[in-house]
Amino acid sequence: MNVSPRPRRTRTAPTAVALLCLAALTACGDPSGHDDAATPATGAAPPRTTSFTENGVTVTLSVSDWHAPKGTLTAVFTPEKKGFHLYSTELPPTGVEGVGRPTAVGVTGVLKADGKLTASADVRSISVPGVDAPMPVYPDGPVTTTLPIRADGNGNGNGDATVLFGYASCSAKEGCTIPVADHPVHLRLTDDGPAFAAP
């Protein structure tokens, strides 16, 4: 009696399972093979702080407490060398008898000042050779100023604004640096509030 040989079993089950798993992964993932969860975001949020240095002073500017359409601009003026001071915000625009320049922060464009510029430091008076009137200055070192701001109009639109800085720093021993007038820093008002251009 002839007996037919038993057909050989093939191991297809593990292969089929592997193919199904691969298909599931391909369907759920990015066709390019990249995992979105592992890919870093390319569009970082614009910064709300920026700084610049000119004529011996570093100015750091930030936006805080933004509750549309209002917020606060904070500017910290830091002389690079010890022994240098800044002039009062109350100093006349051309100084006293032509000496000194006020510490100033102004805003133009879609943002406007919503109050007066104030400084955290106390003003003191000093005598400057050749100047009859006393000079109002802040103590040597950094000075923090704040300016209330608001969006022009209803505050719901986007647009550009510019912050303008003016200042001069002086030392009783080394004299004064060249005054800075209307140094511009640009902002962009978005739905999330004002932010500085990314460097």
Score class of each variant (00 low, 15 high):
V123I: 15
D114F: 13
P184W: 11
R8P: 01
T53G: 01
A75H: 08
V3Y: 00
G175P: 08
T10N: 00
R8D: 05
T144G: 03
K116G: 02
P31H: 07
L91Y: 03
A23K: 01
A119P: 07
A168C: 08
V123C: 07
P93A: 12
N154V: 05
A38P: 00
K82V: 00
T118I: 13
D140T: 14
A16M: 13
V180P: 06
P47L: 03
C170T: 02
A113G: 07
F84L: 07
E174I: 02
T42V: 13
F84R: 12
G33H: 04
C176H: 03
D36K: 05
G83V: 05
T26L: 14
L86M: 10
I126C: 03
G106W: 10
A119V: 04
T89R: 11
T108P: 02
P46N: 13
V57A: 05
K116P: 00
N158L: 01
V57S: 03
S51A: 15
V143R: 01
D132I: 09
A151Q: 08
R124Y: 07
P47Q: 06
K112P: 01
P69K: 03
W66S: 10
P199C: 04
T108D: 15
Y87Q: 04
V96F: 06
P14L: 08
T144K: 14
Y87W: 14
A44V: 09
K112Q: 13
D140A: 15
S64K: 15
T89V: 15
P69M: 06
